[in-house]
């Protein structure tokens, strides 16, 4: 029987704990402090850190309860030790170390972003030998080449400025929508014409594509949206919010999918896994599905609840590390707020 791995996630505003054996998710619990942040229009690190401390023990107990298990059943502890907010990461890493110490079990400090990919194995079954992963959220937009989820992850490209989800939050603000803007812009966009406004596609001109084949840039797009809205207001015209949202979302999805398909072609890969909170975006899901099908590429996207931050993604990556025989982390590991993506296990 595969070892039972308890995974802890606390990189941002979600406290997540889950139990995974092999590729089976046996129990999980998640608590979020997003409601406390919403009124500030952004994540307040100290508010998130305080919430992690209060939620950690109840969340561990709830995850064990949902699996009908006891801490004595746990064979290994995995924790997201980066990247993320230092104060938030610190609470999860300290709790994980205490469990490893108290239970005398191995500790695995794992990469949160790689966890967003690893969780798909719990949903859609074993990964193929090689695949590409696109991880998009409010904090990250990265294209990864994966030869082995626990030992062989290489970053091909990432955003040079804003993350995709971050650009959505900013455009949401421009359109007067509540924070976090992602889901609101998405909803509004569904009622608009995605071809109404030709917004720029960052780093896709031939010269940029040659220099930054797998990188993204969304700040120019965000500025273009702001200018377009300003011009509209200056002319005394009403802002067609749904068309702006739809055209903006189309530009983001287009760039993400175009670059991902280009990477598949360049690396001879026929499977793409998309993860991260922003993969809940409907235009991205639809465009990825249709263009990948046309190109003969299999696309795997976990259900939305496993795209946002949760403990299952960390337990999944920990489980993969244990099964591959990756050496455990030292009890003296720290948190790494800017952990490089080529490191699945610290």
């Amino acid at each position: 029987m595969d070892p039972l791995v308890l995974g802890i996630e606390s990189t941002c505003d979600e406290t997540g704990v889950a139990l995974v054996r092999g590729l089976d998710l046996l129990g999980e619990a998640v608590a979020s402090s997003m409601e406390e942040h919403a009124r500030f229009g952004g994540i307040i690190p100290e508010v998130a850190s305080r919430a992690h401390l209060e939620e950690m023990i109840p969340t561990i107990e709830a995850a064990l309860g949902s699996a009908c298990m006891d801490l004595r059943d746990v064979d290994a502890i995995a924790v997201a030790s980066g990247p993320g907010l230092v104060g938030s990461l610190t609470v999860g890493v300290a709790a994980a170390k205490a469990l490893a110490l108290a239970l005398d079990r191995p500790l695995y400090g794992v990469n949160h972003v790689v966890g967003h990919v690893a969780v798909d194995e719990l949903v859609h079954g074993p990964f193929p030998e090689r695949f590409l992963a696109l991880v998009v959220s409010g904090g990250h937009s990265s294209l990864l080449m994966v030869d082995d989820i626990a030992t062989g992850v290489r970053e091909l490209g990432q955003t040079l400025d804003d993350a995709a989800g971050e650009a959505f939050d900013k455009v949401g603000r421009l359109l007067g929508l509540p924070y976090p803007g992602g889901p609101h812009v998405d909803r509004l966009a569904r009622g608009g014409d995605p071809t109404a406004i030709a917004f720029p596609r960052g780093l896709t001109a031939p010269k940029d594509f040659a220099k930054y084949p797998y990188d993204f840039s969304f700040s120019g797009l965000k500025t273009a949206v702001a200018r377009w809205i300003e011009a509209c207001v200056d002319d005394g015209r009403e802002v067609p919010a749904a068309d702006v949202a739809a055209s903006f979302a189309a530009a983001v999805a287009d760039v993400l999918v175009t670059k991902t398909l280009r990477a598949c072609d360049d690396h001879g890969v026929d499977t793409v896994v998309i993860g991260g909170g922003f993969s809940a975006n409907s235009q991205l899901r639809e465009l990825a599905a249709s263009r990948c099908e046309a190109a003969g590429i299999t696309v795997r996207i976990p259900p939305i609840r496993y795209c946002t931050d949760n403990g299952a993604m960390i337990a999944a990556l920990g489980s993969a590390a244990v099964r591959r025989g990756v050496p455990p982390s030292d009890l003296g590991i720290g948190v790494d707020s800017a952990m490089p993506l080529g490191v699945p296990v610290a």
């Binding site: 305080r50 023990i57 561990i60 230092v86 104060g87 610190t90 609470v91 205490a98 108290a102």
Partner: peptide
Amino acid sequence: TGLRVGLVTARTLALA
């Protein structure tokens, strides 16, 4: 941040 390390460690050890 440092204070929370002590508190979450103590609470988690006690739970375990």
